[in-house]
Simulated scan of single mutants.
Amino acid sequence: MNYTLNQLQIFLKIVQTESVTKASEELHLTQPAVSIQLKNFQDQFDIPLTEVVGRKIYITDFGKEIAEAAENIINQVHAINYKTLTYKGQLTGRLKISVVSTGKYVMPYFLSGFMHQHAGITLVMDVTNKNKVVESLENNEVDFALVSILPNTLNVEKLDLLQNKLYLVGSTGPDFGESSGTQEIFKELPLIFREKGSGTRQTMESFIERNHISVLKKMELTSNEAVKQALLAGLGYSIMPLIGIKNELHNNELRIIPINGLPIITTWSLIWLKGKRHSPVSKSFLDYLENEKKQIVQDKFHWYEQY
Rank of each mutant, 00 (worst) to 15 (best):
L221I: 08
R210F: 03
Q229W: 02
S269P: 06
N252Y: 05
T203R: 11
H212I: 01
I208F: 00
E248A: 12
K246T: 07
N251E: 15
L270A: 08
V215S: 04
S282I: 08
R255S: 12
S206W: 01
L232K: 12
N291K: 15
R255H: 09
V281Q: 10
N247A: 14
S238W: 01
S284P: 06
Q229H: 13
T266F: 01
L286D: 12
W268V: 02
Q202G: 08
E209Q: 14
N260C: 00
S223D: 12
P241L: 02
K274F: 03
L235N: 15
N251P: 06
E205D: 13
T266L: 08
S238E: 09
K274N: 15
N224A: 14
L286K: 11
T222M: 13
S284M: 12
S214W: 04
K217Y: 04
T203W: 00
L249Q: 05
A226M: 12
L216C: 12
K246F: 08
I264Y: 03
P263T: 02
R255M: 14
N224V: 14
Q229F: 02
H278G: 08
L235K: 15
K246M: 06
G234L: 04
M219A: 15
S223W: 10
L289A: 12
I259G: 00
V281F: 03
L254T: 06
K228P: 00
I264A: 08
K283G: 12
E225C: 00
T203Y: 00
I257Q: 07
T267C: 04
R210S: 15
T266E: 14
I259Y: 00
A233Q: 15
L242F: 09
I256H: 01
F285T: 14
P258H: 06
L270G: 08
G275S: 07
D287Y: 10
G261L: 01
I256Y: 01
I257W: 01
L254K: 03
I213N: 05
Q202I: 07
N260R: 12
I259V: 15
P241G: 09
P258Q: 03
I208R: 00
L216P: 03
S269W: 08
Y237I: 06
Q229P: 05
L262P: 07
L262A: 02
T222L: 11
A226I: 05
I257F: 01
H250R: 15
I239V: 14
L289F: 13
E290G: 02
L249C: 03
I208T: 02
R255Y: 02
I239A: 09
I239D: 10
I264V: 15
M240Q: 14
E225G: 07
M240I: 13
K246N: 11
Q229Y: 09
L232M: 10
W272S: 12
K218P: 00
E209S: 12
N211E: 05
E253I: 01
L254P: 13
V215T: 15
L242H: 10
V227H: 07
I243A: 10
T266D: 11
P241K: 02
L249K: 06
L273V: 07
T267V: 09
N260I: 05
A230L: 05
W268F: 14
E209L: 10
P263A: 01
K276Y: 07
L221Y: 06
L221G: 11
T267F: 04
N251F: 04
T203M: 12
L270Y: 03
S206A: 14
L242R: 11
T222R: 14
N211A: 00
S238M: 06
S223G: 09
